[in-house]
Amino acid sequence: MIRVALIGSTGYTALEVARLLLAHPQAELTVATSRSDEGKPLAEIHPFLTGRSNVALQPFDAAKIAEQADVAMCCLPHGASAQSVRELAAAGVRVIDFSADFRLSSVPLYEHWYGVTHPWPERIGNVVYGMPEFFADQIATADVVANPGCYPTSAIMPLAPLVREGLIETNDIIVDSKSGVSGAGRSAKLGTLYCETNESIAAYAIAAHRHGPEMEDLVHRIAGTPVEILFTPHLTPMDRGILSTIYVRPTLSVGDTTESVQSKLSDALRRAYEGQPFVHVVDHLPATKHVKMTNHVQMTVRVSGEPTTPGRAVIVCAIDNLSKGASSAAIQNMNVMFGLDETSGL
């Protein structure tokens, strides 16, 4: 049985990890930490767990956690997470980090976008990105895994195979994403209050969101080609889910038609994810309800233009931001790290 520690246990992603572990046949939650609520039952913080978990919150102590857990799910904010990850790894605990502290490939890129000095800079660029569809072999032996961002998951997964095959222009990619309010976390903020978000949709951080560089960085790493992505996120009045609408220009050959280009792009995505249990290239238009509370990804392609003059391609991708965008992706990574079937508990 894999023993799992939750580091930073009060947020939505931590609750989602705990919920998934309740149904996991080969893993159990043995430790939960909190800096502000130590001593309290985890079920008091998350009433959903009442009668289902007897774990009490304890202070962070890497050595003690190493005695109680084989792997830690670190659900701390960026900046605060890296030091805890470093201590856990030194104590022999394998770590899946939910923050952005190890996702990017260079220290200057990280420090520019996150505005903090990285406490473990020698590991930047040397931590595997937790997307088993591309990095399973590295994840299997990793001591630290950088769990992907939620918005980036919805963009990287459709874009990387198409860029890798040279099927789309790399300097004209627009990612327009809508997210449920849970993506902003559990802490009280004016912009996520009910009266602010109900019956409203709003763009934010235009051309300035930290997940934009993550999308570019990872597509480059996977496909081997640099890309330019204009990313615009929106907050929508729903609890959970992400729908990304991605606009690209196909690279065209003589004789291409709108139908042939659409088939070419769809076939490339199907080839890329053949045998992957959680990624589905579909004919219908994906919606967030189609993937709610699952580790599944749905994507589809449409091409604009007249029959013989293809225009832009539009890719629609749906994930659950708390699941494939965070916690169930972490469980998938844990399964790979410990040699289990990727779908175990999912």
Rank of each mutant, 00 (worst) to 15 (best):
I168L: 10
I229M: 13
T309S: 14
L159I: 08
G212P: 00
S53E: 08
T309I: 15
P132C: 14
T245L: 03
V128L: 03
S304I: 10
I319M: 08
T33A: 06
P132Y: 11
A18I: 01
Q298T: 06
I222W: 00
P310H: 12
D341E: 15
Q26V: 07
Y114P: 00
N198K: 09
L20H: 07
I168F: 04
F231L: 09
F98V: 04
I331D: 05
H296K: 14
T294S: 15
S53G: 06
I168V: 14
L235W: 02
P250G: 10
D176Y: 14
A23I: 00
L104E: 02
P158V: 06
A202C: 04
D61K: 05
E196W: 03
D320F: 12
S187K: 11
P132L: 09
S84F: 02
H209A: 10
M131A: 11
A63D: 11
A63I: 06
G275C: 08
F231T: 01
T13V: 14
K324M: 15
I246R: 07
H220M: 07
S177C: 15
P119R: 03
R164Q: 15
S344Q: 09
A146H: 04
P121K: 03
I65M: 03
D283W: 06
T30I: 05
Y129F: 14
R221Q: 15
I7Y: 00
V261W: 04
C75H: 02
L322M: 15
L218S: 03
T141F: 01
P119W: 03
Y12R: 04
I139S: 01
T10D: 06
Q276W: 08
A287V: 13
H234F: 13
A202E: 10
I229K: 02
L346R: 02
M337T: 06
N126W: 01
G130E: 02
I156A: 06
I201T: 14
A89M: 05
S327Y: 10
L167Y: 04
L252F: 03
V219Y: 05
A223E: 02
V127A: 01
S182I: 10
A43L: 06
R3H: 07
K324T: 13
Q58C: 09
L21T: 01
D283V: 13
P310A: 13
A66T: 09
L6Y: 00
A160Q: 08
